[in-house]
Amino acid sequence: MLWYHIAVLALIQGLTEFLPISSSAHLILPSQLLNWPDQGLAFDVAVHVGTLIAVVSYFWKDLWKIATGWVTGLVQRKVDQTSKLGWCIILGTIPAGLCGVLFESFIEEHFRTIEVIAYTTIGFGILLWLSDKYFPAQKNESQLGYLSGFLIGCAQALALIPGTSRSGVTMTAARAMGFDRQTAARFSFLLSVPLILAAGGLKLVELMGSDVAVDWNALIWGVLISAISAYLCIYFFLKWLNSMGFLPFLFYRLALGAILLVIINSGS
Rank of each mutant, 00 (worst) to 15 (best):
W216C: 11
W216L: 13
W216E: 10
W216P: 05
W216K: 09
N217P: 07
N217S: 11
A218W: 13
A218Q: 15
A218N: 13
L219S: 05
L219M: 12
I220Q: 02
I220T: 12
I220E: 11
I220G: 11
I220W: 08
I220K: 00
I220S: 06
W221H: 08
W221G: 11
W221S: 02
G222S: 05
G222H: 02
V223Y: 05
V223W: 04
V223D: 02
V223T: 04
V223L: 05
V223S: 01
L224R: 09
L224C: 12
L224Q: 03
L224T: 14
L224H: 11
L224V: 15
I225C: 02
I225A: 08
I225Y: 05
I225G: 03
S226F: 07
A227T: 06
A227C: 04
A227H: 07
A227R: 01
A227E: 03
A227S: 06
I228G: 08
I228T: 10
I228K: 08
I228S: 08
S229D: 03
S229R: 08
A230F: 01
A230E: 00
A230N: 04
A230S: 10
A230Y: 00
A230W: 03
A230Q: 06
A230K: 03
Y231E: 10
Y231T: 06
Y231C: 07
C233D: 00
C233E: 03
C233R: 01
C233H: 00
I234P: 00
I234M: 08
I234G: 03
I234K: 00
I234S: 01
I234F: 05
F237C: 07
F237K: 00
F237W: 05
F237N: 10
F237R: 03
L238W: 10
K239A: 13
K239E: 12
K239V: 07
K239M: 11
K239S: 12
W240N: 15
W240H: 15
W240E: 12
W240A: 13
W240D: 13
W240V: 14
L241A: 08
N242P: 09
N242C: 07
N242T: 15
S243H: 15
S243P: 04
S243I: 09
S243A: 15
S243Q: 15
M244L: 14
M244F: 14
G245V: 01
G245E: 01
G245N: 04
G245F: 02
F246W: 07
F246P: 01
F246H: 00
L247R: 13
L247F: 11
L247V: 11
L247N: 13
L247K: 14
F249A: 10
F249P: 09
F249Y: 11
F249C: 07
F249R: 00
F249W: 10
L250P: 06
L250A: 09
L250K: 04
L250C: 01
L250S: 05
